[in-house]
Amino acid sequence: MPGLEDLYREIILDHYRNPRNRGELESPPALRVEGFNPLCGDEIVVYLELDGEGRIAEIRIGGQGCSISQSSASMMSAAVKGRTIAEVGDLTRAFKAMMSIHESSLGGEAAEPAEVPDVKLGDLEALRGVVKFPVRIKCATLAWNTLAQALDDAAS
């Protein structure tokens, strides 16, 4: 049985205690997208500013949720700041692949996506233990799904 230390890694608790890029950006000009986890009521607000070259110039995170959703959002904000939309896309796919390994083996659906971008996840690796707690996977992916929605909105 997985233990709490698999879930609540020190680096996760650190991001929970001291969330990075917490706050708001004036919108407009910033993009503002809300994400909800209808199962537990967690909500996240992603504020995003892109520069002329398609990089994430500024990102802020609002909303409320559990330690996993909040720390995941904090780590995400640190990881994507300054990156191009293409880089963020790769990072998102790599992160989700890490999260969905167990998700897919549980659901009996198609296995891992054929191509997982070869990118370093860094601190985000700390969230790998979440897959041992299937109920919490949605907590960890909430911020990423919200960011993807924001980038989709930006593209359209």
Partner: peptide, 21 residues
């Protein structure tokens, strides 16, 4: 403490409570 985190830690001790809306 967020209810999710409370119920996760309670579960370690076999205590089943609901967290959510």
């Amino acid at each position: 403490l967020h209810p999710h985190d409370i119920s996760q830690i309670l579960d370690e001790r076999g205590v089943c409570v609901r967290a959510g809306h």
